[in-house]
Design a protein around this nucleic acid. Structure first.
Lengths: 334, 334
DNA sequence: TTGTATGCGTTATCAA
DNA sequence: TTGATAACGCATACAA
């Protein structure tokens, strides 16, 4: 019996299917499948003909239908704050590389500093992937609700969450080394341009502890926006609070760049008048004048670790927090 | 008739399906579907029960099965050279934003400067997306074979290809403005640290034309690797060729950073002894000392344009090349 | 309110 | 070498 409506039943501009090709080539859809997938058991001539028709129809297999039938390929989603911050590309590179090793594919999205979009993005991505990795800012409960059971690895630096896996940064070794170096250079009054709420364990707390342990006076602190402008304003505020500060720890390298600018306009030389230590170990810090001494994080490794965590999650277990250490990358600003 | 093997038929650790949940909840799979998708026609109580079972089973709908049945969502793949080069994150941001506006999802991959992986990546990605956008280095024929009919937008700067769509950068306005500025500052002998093969239209050619049109002597050129080291070596080679060069155009900002370093070690001040113009308009150039004057490309817009091109391709047409202009971003190095 | 039957586009099995 | 036929997991008419 002939089918009345070959392909006319479908909504207008739809993609051709295996059956469409089959019909036009006068074979069964199964034969087309053989041709497309280069299976052996097929006459070279029919193969050629089928392929020709397929090309003419611009046939392309549906990834959904394939996914349904073929052995599972795992896909992970990665959400970052702001891809323009050089911190993330390195992290992303680590994630991609680790995923590639496992033949996973990764889907990347960014909220571009608009935290309001985070939940929505999380929700939409959660429907498309097997696991998620995120540098997030929304509250854990909201996040948990949004991902609805999809395994999630967080890197946002937060206390332990019951179901998420996490990779965290231990700022202590780096801060310890930085403080020791500052002391060795005669500094005692340390200031910090902080960006509260964005880190855990909290860098400032660690700085205070280390300073206290070394017999230093309580560090002077000012809160700033996580940006160059924030850093610039932060330094002038810091100096207004306490003009005797001779060394500054910036929340991160971006903030540190603001400190450079501010120092320059204040007529302060680095490291002569002011020693400066950044945080993150961004490579471009090496091109600042003078090159920025900074507490380094292995961002690439961080991405790799996140993928490992996701792997464990996917296996149905909850891994312990993956800890990443820090060290001091000595350049010239301190 | 009872089914003998409820779920035992499947390979061991497989994901639960709608039917598994249905069985455990003692309802039909259809009812489960209703509960999961929050359809109205369902008793709140059974809904609750079903959801509970689903959660307990850690049920998550298959994205493939959904994709098969639901109205199509389009996914595009983006391949870049090297996500660590700050040029790309901006471009990526543009792509993501434009895709988001269309409710498309983006799959990002990078070859990390390993061109050999490019074709393989292309092939694998081609199977997972509806269209591709790529900053590629392999020959067009090889690329065409790899993507096998998947619509592709290229940004690698190459002569027109019969089936790919393209977005290209017109370096002329920027170079014109740069040369004029250099002339206004008394420069006549211009050098270029070039990275041949990576651009089209070729920046060097344009520079030559512009210089000639302005009655300047033929620019001195040296070929360099597209990296900081390349830039550093490039400058010393350039100066060895012609010690009278007073102004340099770098192939891009990364190369320009190498020029800075080299100039510093040569005891040359910028812009006093040597005027320097970069290419790309990377934002970090503003933090160099002195801030880098550079020929700017709107990278974000470039990403947006690529998505538009993809959209046209997806509609079955081949769009004309999208041209992106350049301008001079005057900072202080020239 | 709930269940039955059907189809989405592909691959795999098995018979012709 | 080819072609029926049956999954894959889900959603949606339509029937109960």
């Amino acid at each position: 019996m002939e089918n009345e409506k070959p392909g006319a039943r479908r909504a207008s501009p739809q993609r051709p299917t295996l059956r469409d090709v089959a019909r036009l080539a006068g074979v069964s859809h199964q034969t087309v499948s053989r041709a497309i997938n280069d299976k052996g058991e097929i006459d070279p001539e029919t193969r050629r003909r089928v392929l020709e028709v397929a090309q003419q129809l611009k046939y392309r297999p549906s990834r959904f239908a394939r996914g349904l039938v073929r052995p599972a390929t795992t896909t992970i989603g990665l959400i970052v704050d702001d891809i323009l911050n050089p911190f993330f590309p390195e992290l992303i590179a680590g994630v991609i590389s680790a995923a590639e090793q496992r033949s996973w594919t990764v889907l990347i999205s960014t909220t571009q500093k608009s935290p309001s979009k985070e939940l929505e993005l999380l929700r939409s991505l959660a429907g498309q992937v097997d696991a998620l990795i995120g540098y997030l800012s929304q509250p854990d409960e909201a996040v948990a609700a949004a991902v609805e059971g999809v395994p999630l690895v967080v890197m946002h630096g937060r206390p332990d969450h019951p179901v998420f896996a996490a990779v965290e940064i231990d700022p202590r070794p780096g801060i310890q080394a930085a403080v020791e170096r500052l002391i060795a250079h005669g500094h005692r009054r340390i200031g910090m341009v902080d960006c509260p709420g964005a880190d855990y364990p909290v860098r400032l707390d660690v700085l205070r502890e280390v300073a206290a342990a070394q017999g230093l006076p309580e560090p002077v602190v000012t809160d700033a926006d996580q940006s160059q402008d924030g850093g610039a304003q932060g330094l002038s505020r810091l100096l207004k609070c306490d003009p005797d500060v001779t060394a500054v720890l910036a929340f991160n390298d971006i903030v540190a760049m603001g400190v450079y600018r501010s120092a320059r306009s204040l007529g302060l030389s680095i490291p002569g008048d002011l020693a400066l230590v950044g945080f993150d170990g961004l490579s471009f810090g090496d091109n600042l004048d003078p090159p920025l001494t900074t507490i380094n994080i292995d961002k690439y490794r961080m991405g790799e670790l996140a993928v490992s965590q996701a792997e464990v999650l996917l296996a149905g277990e909850k891994p312990p927090i993956a800890m990443l250490t820090t060290d001091l990358l000595v350049r010239s600003s301190a």
